[in-house]
Amino acid sequence: MATVKFKYKGEEKEVDISKIKKVWRVGKMISFTYDEGGGKTGRGAVSEKDAPKELLQMLEKQ
C-alpha cells in the first residue's frame, strides 16, 4: 500500500493511505485527516505535486 510523507509542526511523518479518512483541497495543497490509533485523529497536508496518485484519486472520488 502507498504511504504519504509530510511534515506536521516541524516533524517528519508518514502515514499509510488506508488510514486516511477525509481528503480536501486547500489552494495547491491537499489536506487530510487520518486515524492515529487509540481513538485519535491526526492531520496532515502535502503539496499537490508531492501527493501520491492514490491520495489524488481519493480526492476525485469525493
Rank of each mutant, 00 (worst) to 15 (best):
R43H: 07
R25G: 12
T33W: 13
V4D: 00
M29I: 08
K49D: 15
T41A: 10
E14V: 06
L56Y: 09
K53E: 12
K28T: 05
M29K: 12
S18K: 02
K22C: 15
G44F: 04
V26S: 15
A51D: 02
K13S: 02
V26F: 02
G42K: 06
A51L: 07
I20H: 00
L55T: 01
F6S: 02
Y34Q: 00
K49F: 09
P52M: 05
M29T: 11
G38V: 11
D50S: 09
A45K: 06
Y34P: 00
K21Q: 08
L56I: 09
D50N: 11
D16E: 11
E60C: 13
E11G: 11
I17C: 06
Y34C: 02
K13W: 03
K28P: 15
E54M: 08
V4R: 00
E12S: 07
G39S: 10
A2K: 09
K13R: 06
V4L: 07
K19A: 12
K22P: 01
S31P: 03
T41M: 11
D35R: 03
K40Y: 15
Y34W: 12
D50L: 15
S47M: 08
I30R: 00
R43I: 03
M29Q: 11
K7C: 14
K53R: 07
E60P: 03
P52A: 07
A45P: 01
E48H: 07
A51T: 12
E11M: 04
K53L: 15
E14G: 02
G37M: 13
L55V: 08
Q62I: 06
V26A: 12
V23Q: 02
V15D: 00
V23Y: 03
K9Q: 14
G10S: 04
K9D: 10
Q57T: 05
R25Y: 08
K49M: 11
V26L: 10
L59A: 11
I30Y: 02
I20C: 13
K22A: 12
A2L: 10
G42F: 12
L59K: 01
D50I: 07
E36D: 05
E36M: 07
E12R: 11
E12G: 06
V26K: 14
R43F: 04
E12W: 12
K21Y: 15
R43Y: 06
E54Q: 14
R25C: 10
G42C: 11
G44A: 15
E36Y: 10
K28V: 03
G44T: 02
I20W: 01
G44L: 02
Y8W: 06
G27H: 04
V23L: 06
G39C: 15
K13M: 14
E36G: 08
E54C: 08
V26M: 06
L55W: 02
A51W: 01
E54K: 04
K61N: 12
W24D: 15
M58A: 04
K49A: 07
P52G: 07
V15P: 00
M1Y: 12
G39R: 05
G38S: 07
A2H: 14
E11T: 07
E48M: 04
K53Y: 08
K13L: 09
A51K: 01
Y34R: 00
P52L: 10
I30F: 05
K40Q: 11
G10R: 02
W24K: 04
K40W: 13
K19T: 07
Q62W: 02
K13N: 03
E11R: 08
S31R: 06
M1Q: 10
K53I: 05
K7D: 13
P52F: 04
G42D: 14
S18D: 12
K22G: 13
I20D: 00
S18G: 07
A2I: 07
L56F: 04
A51V: 05
V4W: 01
K13F: 08
G37D: 15
E54T: 12
I20M: 03
V4E: 00
P52D: 07
T41G: 11
K49I: 15
K49T: 11
K28E: 15
K21D: 07
S47L: 04
Q57Y: 07
A2Q: 12
K53F: 13
K19R: 11
E60N: 04
V4P: 00
K53G: 10
G37A: 13
R43T: 14
M1P: 06
M29W: 04
R43Q: 08
E11D: 04
T41W: 04
E11Y: 13
V15S: 02
Y34F: 07
T33H: 09
K53V: 10
A45C: 13
E60M: 05
F32W: 01
G10A: 02
D50M: 08
I20V: 09
G38R: 07
K61H: 14
L59M: 07
E36V: 05
T33G: 15
K5N: 04
Q57R: 03
G37L: 13
A2F: 08
E14K: 04
V46S: 11
R43P: 08
F32S: 00
A51Q: 03
V15L: 03
S31Q: 09
M58P: 01
Y8E: 08
R25M: 08
L59I: 03
G27L: 03
D35L: 10
I30N: 01
V23D: 00
T3S: 09
F6C: 02
Y34S: 01
A45Q: 12
L55P: 00
K7I: 11
K22I: 10
D16C: 11
K21S: 15
T3A: 06
K21W: 12
V26E: 15
G44H: 02
E12N: 07
E11W: 05
G38Q: 15
M1G: 15
L55C: 03
L59T: 08
T3H: 03
K49V: 12
E60T: 04
M58R: 05
T33P: 00
S47Q: 08
M58I: 10
L55K: 00
E48W: 05
K19L: 13
Q62S: 15
T3K: 05
K7F: 11
A2G: 10
Q62M: 09
P52W: 01
S18A: 07
K28A: 14
M58T: 03
K21E: 15
E48Y: 08
Q57S: 06
D16P: 04
T41P: 08
K49C: 13
M1E: 12
G37I: 14
V4H: 00
R43A: 10
I17A: 03
V46T: 13
F6W: 09
M58Q: 07
G27K: 13
G27W: 02
P52N: 11
E48P: 13
G38E: 11
I17D: 01
E14W: 03
K7E: 15
L59D: 02
L56M: 10
S47K: 06
G38I: 07
M58N: 03
G37Q: 11
K7W: 14
E14S: 09
V15I: 07
K13D: 01
K21A: 12
G27I: 03
